[in-house]
Amino acid sequence: MSDARIEGYARGLFEIARAEGTLDEVEDELFRFARSFESSDSLRSALTDDMIPAAKRLAIVEDLLGGKATATTTQLISMVVGAGRGRDLPAIIDTLVARASSAKNLEVAEVRTAVPLSADQQARLAAALANATGRQVNLKVVVDPAVIGGVVATVGDTVIDGSVRTRIDQLKSRL
């Protein structure tokens, strides 16, 4: 999909969420859904396979998010998947998150950890990243077992890697 179309979808979703007054929550849910979409081959193939009828793809979204996410999040994802743009869902959501963060003068900070972070840890980490980058950050935490341990933080083009995965890879390279 072209950047303009992704931008258009992102702007539409952003406006809907903001109009619904649930932008922060929807943005967070969409972000986590996008990361799950990227890491799960079966989910990605189910939502992007043109041979699967749109109704069935929407039913899959409903099964996944029904009762676990806000209705707005479910409807927005259903809208994108129903339009046959499931393949561009991560790009659309990332653009939406960037737009939402920009609206709040924040920089998106994607943080990957092996275990969930507590609210206190997220607050202290956001403060630490703001202190390190000189910009206020919109923290997006992704639980990724591939990290194994530690934290990987990406703020714009800056990557701060404190993961066990990377240390193990370095050790393997030396071996």
């Binding site: 950890t113 275990v115 972070l117 840890q121 202290r124 980490l125 403060a127 630490a128 990243l129 202190n131 390190a132 341990g149 530690g150 934290v151 933080a153 701060i160 404190g162 066990v164």
Partner: peptide
């Protein structure tokens, strides 16, 4: 938790 706290401290 120790690794996370260490990361937060180092970044801060």
């Amino acid at each position: 938790q120790e690794l996370i706290e260490s990361f937060i401290s180092r970044v801060g």
